[in-house]
């Protein structure tokens, strides 16, 4: 799919997530918006996975370690045809399976996440299994940058380097904000690039809200015999001006006027793309 089409998809997902959170009055808004471009690139261009091949041994695996951005994942999967969008009508409601973090009760979701620091180790296990079975599939793990403070991430990073898992791609949604403020003020994990490099990873740093950058990095062959980290510099709340780079939008729900204003901004961006 070409870059413009993917950008349009990303805007469609942003609109859907904005509406979902506004309707349900819950969600991790800023975190969703920062990684929607990454999810779009993965599900509409990069991942060797379809709703029909999902879960098969040879199919690519995507694990969302930053589980709180589940609304972005739900709307991406719905748009990609994993389940009907109407399934989300009861999002976060009574007895729903579509809860506030990913669960593998839902078609398209591999593992239950939500507690941070688990996804990379799960990815190491899946990637090791692929090596054992001599499969060419790839495993992608999306993490947050605040999440990098979890010690379990570094146990997994060490194991991935140790086992030369060149079939594993970690992506850090590096929006530099977490619930209490900037990641450097809460717990400085910089330099992430040099830390992963020291743990035996091949690191690529990109603009994680730029579709061209994303496609280049996600498609780039790995000839290093190392696991690859894509350090995706993003903007938290990307796409809605008053939400961008604001830590307090981590899980804030828009008011009616904010909802309408945000929707207008997204529509304007879509129209601009149509006119390109």
């Amino acid at each position: 799919m070409n870059t413009i089409e993917l950008q349009k998809k990303a805007l469609t997902i942003r609109e859907a997530v904005w509406e979902l959170i506004y309707s349900a009055k819950t969600g991790h808004t800023g975190s969703d918006f920062s990684c929607i471009d990454i999810l779009t690139a993965l599900y509409f261009d990069v991942l060797q996975q379809t709703p029909d091949t999902f879960g098969k041994p040879e199919t690519d695996t995507y694990i969302q370690s930053k589980g709180h951005a589940v609304e972005a994942l739900y709307e991406t999967l719905a748009l990609r045809g994993y389940f009907p969008k109407t399934d989300l009508n009861n999002f976060s409601g009574f007895k729903t399976h579509y809860i506030g973090h990913p669960t593998n009760d839902i078609h398209g979701i591999e593992m239950n996440t939500g507690s941070l620091g688990h996804g990379l180790g799960l990815g190491v296990g899946v990637a090791l299994a692929a090596k054992m079975d001599k499969l060419t599939k790839k495993t992608f793990v999306l993490m947050g940058d605040g999440e990098q403070a979890e010690g379990s991430i570094w146990e997994a990073a060490m194991a991935a380097g140790n086992y030369h898992l060149d079939n594993l791609i970690g992506i850090i949604d590096h929006n530099k904000l977490q619930i209490s403020g900037s990641t450097t003020s809460v717990m400085n994990s910089e330099s992430l690039a040099s830390k992963y490099t020291a743990f035996g990873w091949d690191v690529i740093e990109i603009n994680g809200n730029d579709m061209t950058d994303l496609l280049d990095a996600l498609h780039q062959d790995n000839l290093t015999s190392k696991p690859r980290l894509i350090l995706a510099n993003t903007i938290k709340g990307k796409g809605i001006s008053f939400m961008e780079n604001q830590a307090n939008w981590h899980h804030k729900v828009p008011s009616e006027s904010q909802y309408l204003e945000g929707l207008n901004e997204l529509k304007a961006q879509k129209e601009a793309l149509e006119n390109d």
Partner: peptide, 12 residues
């Protein structure tokens, strides 16, 4: 990581 990697292997 021992337990998490095992879960990843079981998933695969």
């Amino acid at each position: 990581n021992l337990v998490t990697v095992a879960a990843g292997l079981a998933h695969a």
